[in-house]
């Protein structure tokens, strides 16, 4: 009987969910508005969606964002895995404190600070060694991979720590050697967390505006940068349409992923 949640609690919770969802749902509705005027409903139309495909700037930016997202997420995941292994499997090593510091500080560093400091380094490096020449996709990739790997490390670390160590010990007892034991036993067991880490790094990169703004150069505007500059010009049905598509596609992934995870947990 004490499981009953008081009415006031439920009411506040529903308002909370309202705060999270009402703006996005309204935006989605208005993305189908015929009128150019945002707030006047002039009938249902999908014309803004059709116009998106002819907007070259958006399409190019999308392509760049996906490219940067995939490459930086891959680097992030590999390095995140290495960091996780270092922390969970190696009890003590020289530089442990340093690694734990530099692997966790980016998690709390304000984006503006990270972006600014990286840009300053890139400029100093260019002045000293001539690399990287100018800023572009490669510098954004490096920046995203750097903070992405810290998030990836956290995700994989949690899973690796929960893993039964005796499984690895059993494999070694039966004559397995590294890295075979890792690849045949550990890796498959932590694979879900590796996938989750990759997806997290990808979304972080794909959604990032601030860091990318600092370390991008002319002609390397990512999708958030393009959208941000459009938003500053005012609300428009076209951005409504882009935003709706992006949110819907990511939400579809999240729902699918959650269903898979919950179903697996449910079976246990």
């Amino acid at each position: 009987m004490r499981r009953n949640v008081p009415f006031l609690v439920k009411l506040l919770a529903i308002i909370g969910f309202g705060i999270l969802y009402v703006p996005v749902i309204m935006m989605m509705i208005y993305s189908f508005n015929k009128s150019k005027l945002v707030s006047v409903w002039a009938g249902f139309s999908t014309k803004w969606y059709k116009e998106l495909w002819t907007d070259d700037i958006l399409i190019t930016a999308l392509y760049k964002s996906v490219l940067i997202g995939i490459s930086s997420a891959t680097i992030s995941t590999i390095f995140g895995l290495l960091i996780a292994i270092a922390f969970v499997r190696f009890a003590s090593f020289r530089g442990r404190l340093f690694l734990s510091l530099v692997a966790s500080a980016p998690l709390v560093m304000p984006e503006a600070v990270t972006g600014l400091s990286m840009l300053l380094l890139f400029i100093a490096m260019e002045a000293s060694f001539g690399w990287p020449s100018g800023r572009g996709i490669d510098t954004i990739m490096i920046a995203h991979a750097t903070f992405g790997m810290c998030f990836a490390a956290v995700v994989i670390q949690t899973r690796l720590r929960d893993m039964d160590k005796s499984l690895e010990e059993a494999a070694r007892d039966l004559g397995g050697r590294q890295p075979f034991v890792f690849l045949s036993i550990t890796f498959p067991l932590i694979l879900p967390s590796i996938i989750a880490a990759w997806l997290l790094s990808f979304t972080l990169s794909f959604d990032d505006l601030v860091i990318a703004s600092f370390v991008s150069g002319p002609g390397s505007s990512t999708l958030p940068i393009v959208i941000f500059s459009k938003i500053r010009l005012g609300v428009s049905p076209e951005i409504n349409a882009v935003a709706t598509l992006m949110i819907l596609s990511i939400s579809a992934f999240v729902i699918l992923g959650s269903l898979l995870v919950l179903r697996r947990d449910g079976k246990k």
Binding site: L209, F228, N240, I250
Partner: peptide, 12 residues
């Protein structure tokens, strides 16, 4: 989902 897009939705 992107915070930027949700802020945009809030502006609307």
């Amino acid at each position: 989902t992107s915070s930027l897009l949700r802020m945009y939705a809030l502006i609307g």
